[in-house]
Amino acid sequence: MAERNFRVWRGDADGGEFVNYKVEMEPGMVVLDAIHRIQTHQANDLAVRWNCKAGKCGSCSCEVNGKPKLSCMTRVNDYAPEETITVQPLKTFPIVKDLVTDVSWNYEQKAKIQPLQPRPREADGTHRMQQEDVDRIQEFRKCIECFLCQDVCHVLRNQDRKDAFVGPRFMIHLAQLEMHPLDTADRIPAIKNEYGSGLCNITRCCTDVCPEHIGITDNAIIPLKERVVDRYYDPVMMIWRAITGAGAK
């Protein structure tokens, strides 16, 4: 069997280094298989988080040759045979050990967001929705919370504005709530001020890396930005609202 070179980052929050490993290949291997093989045969203490190995749990997020990816969905033969495959932890979150990062900041953001506030039930005790009304938000429910979009977002990754922007993952979550036909809560002021929709400059990297192919930028972030424009920046709509009292959720 052929061997391939892997370069895996080993270390913790205090520092570390890349370590080279030669791994025996089998047909159909993904990067996570190679990491497991290293863990089994060469480095028993190599830390890696994983769970489903089917691209649905979002646990094995890392960076492969500089790109945020799910290691379980990244085939080794996507890379040229002579190419060394570099595997490193997510950049945006603090390192726990080796390929494992502490993504708890994300859960703190989610906890800040006002949950669904449905309108009262109808007379027969039900909530009715039409399929066409929930088509849009069903796309957002595909999110597996792998946080690759959070990792690649330069506002969080390079500009370190975690203090002002919740990131693309939670813009999806906010869009899902704001566009929900039963929801009565008004999150637009918080989307502008607290969650930082204005910090996104639409460079679409979140959409590029999403393993679920969610249209994060086009279907969630931009529609939310436009709703913020309706409320805060469009002079005609502001006058219209002042005259008619329309627009409040």
Binding site: P68, V152, N158, Q159, G198, L199, T203, Y232, Y233
Partner: peptide
């Protein structure tokens, strides 16, 4: 800002504000 995904951006003068300050006109 940035030139490509997961590529380090050009240095930012001051704190990054995205489209909130100088680029606020994009909202029109």
């Amino acid at each position: 800002s940035p030139p490509a995904c997961a590529v380090n951006p050009a240095p930012q003068p001051g704190k990054y504000e995205g489209e909130r300050m100088l680029l606020l006109f994009q909202n029109l």
